Computed example of a mutant assay.
Amino acid sequence: MEIGFGNGEHLAAIARQRPGWGCLGAEVHTPGVGSLLLQLLETGTNNVRIVHDDVVTWLQTLPEALLQCIIIQFPDPWPKKRQQKRRLIQPDFAALLCRLLVPGGELQMATDWADYAEQMLAILNATPGLQNTQPDAGYAPRPDNRILTRFERRGQRLGHAVHDLCYRRLT
């Protein structure tokens, strides 16, 4: 599952690479949903289902241990101090993501905002049931499955370093 898939280029690429997988994508931005649908239509990819709604509410309805992998790339950083309470990665949401992963399932995240990366790292390292895949409990190398997206290229142009995080659900 990819949460906040933007224009869908990453989710479409994964779905094409792994036709045997059932892929889920969640996005509230209607043009992004349309973009993904066009990509899937053009390539004949049919293993993706889309949630075009508030993903938090929807995820709360799902049973435990359902997903092998959850990907969140470049979530809205809400950079102003007064906005940071709106950031997606908060303790309750991290616990929900952990609950949805199968034991051994992987949570992959990336951001190009250093202070958000620090917040994400602190929250996820403190989430019971999640284990950072890095021995030093720090940032991870870029996962092999993550393609360079438009959002990441924009961050690079702005001189932002990308911080990847990777966690596994404990049994």
Rank of each mutant, 00 (worst) to 15 (best):
M1T: 02
M1V: 05
E2D: 02
I3C: 01
F5K: 00
F5V: 04
N7C: 09
N7K: 15
G8H: 07
E9C: 06
H10A: 07
H10L: 03
L11E: 00
A12P: 11
A12H: 03
I14Y: 00
I14K: 03
Q17K: 15
R18D: 04
R18P: 02
R18G: 06
G20R: 15
W21Q: 15
G25Q: 01
A26E: 07
E27A: 02
V28F: 11
V28Q: 13
V28C: 08
V28K: 13
H29V: 08
P31G: 00
G32A: 06
V33F: 08
V33M: 11
G34P: 05
S35P: 12
L36D: 01
L37I: 06
L38Q: 13
L38P: 04
L38N: 09
T43Y: 05
T43K: 15
T43N: 13
N46S: 14
V48H: 04
V48M: 05
V48E: 07
V51N: 09
V51A: 11
V55L: 11
V56H: 08
V56F: 09
Q60H: 12
Q60E: 13
T61Y: 09
L62S: 10
E64Q: 15
L66G: 09
C69A: 14
I71L: 13
F74Q: 04
P75C: 01
W78H: 08
K80F: 03
K81P: 04
R82E: 03
Q84R: 08
K85V: 00
L88I: 04
I89V: 09
F93H: 05
F93A: 02
A94D: 00
A94I: 02
A94L: 04
A95V: 11
A95Y: 06
L97N: 02
C98L: 06
R99L: 10
R99M: 09
V102M: 14
V102A: 09
V102C: 10
V102W: 07
V102D: 08
V102Y: 08
G104C: 05
G104L: 06
G105Y: 04
G105T: 01
G105R: 03
E106Y: 11
L107D: 01
Q108T: 13
Q108R: 15
T111H: 00
T111V: 00
D112H: 00
D112C: 01
D112Q: 01
A114Y: 01
D115F: 11
D115H: 11
E118M: 10
E118P: 07
E118K: 15
Q119R: 15
M120K: 01
M120V: 00
L124W: 02
L124A: 02
A126C: 08
T127D: 01
T127Y: 07
P128N: 12
P128R: 15
L130W: 03
L130V: 02
L130E: 04
Q131G: 11
Q131K: 14
T133N: 10
D136I: 02
A137W: 12
G138C: 07
P141H: 15
R142A: 06
D144G: 13
N145A: 08
R146D: 05
I147P: 10
T149K: 10
R150P: 14
F151D: 03
E152A: 07
G155P: 05
Q156W: 11
R157V: 05
L158N: 11
L158W: 03
G159I: 11
G159W: 05
H160P: 06
A161L: 08
V162Q: 03
D164C: 12
Y167D: 05
L170E: 10
L170F: 08
T171F: 13
T171V: 14
